[in-house]
């Protein structure tokens, strides 16, 4: 769409005459465009308690905004903490992996002497590495 193209809006004379600021009028119409189609002028003319309704909705909006804000904040904190712990666990897992490599070499030298502890440690490390890989896949 060319930005040089001109766009005109034809405003009925009577409306233009009773509107002091046409720029403001068009600004508002564009701003509220998604709601314009919902306006029933006949219904609007009959409406009397708009101010009261407005106060109520404003209060409701204020209240829900507060709840929403607090929850978003809580989510931010929990998400940060969980993320930090997850990263820490992953890093520790990597270090453990390196340690396992050393142990692997040790096992090949020392053989059966290490068997019991070595196997349970290996099982546990496999469990955690699978678990973190799975979590990583979920996140992707």
């Amino acid at each position: 769409m060319s930005e040089k193209r001109k766009f005109n809006i034809w405003i009925p004379d009577s409306t233009a005459e009773s509107t002091p600021d046409l720029t403001d009028l068009v600004d508002q119409l564009i701003y509220y465009y998604p709601y314009l189609m919902k306006v029933d002028c006949e219904e609007l003319k009959k409406k009397k308690d708009l101010e009261k309704e407005s106060d109520e909705v404003n209060a409701e909006f204020f209240q829900i905004s507060q709840v929403h804000g607090k929850l978003r904040q809580e989510y931010g904190v929990v998400h940060f903490e969980a993320n930090e712990l997850y990263t820490r666990n992953t890093l520790t897992g990597l270090k453990l992996g390196m340690l396992m490599k050393k142990l692997n070499r040790a096992k090949s030298i020392w053989g059966e002497k290490l068997n019991l502890d070595y196997d349970s440690a290996k099982e546990m490390i496999k469990h955690y590495s699978d678990r973190y890989l799975l979590k990583k896949e979920e996140e992707i």
Binding site: L29, Y32, C41, K45, L50
Partner: peptide, 23 residues
């Protein structure tokens, strides 16, 4: 919309409309 709206020559209708849209 403006065409429809201009059929109603009630005073304050524009103000009402803005309040309604804001709501």
């Amino acid at each position: 919309f403006l065409d429809r709206f201009s059929e109603y020559d009630e005073e304050d209708l524009w103000e009402k409309l803005l309040s309604f849209l804001h709501l």
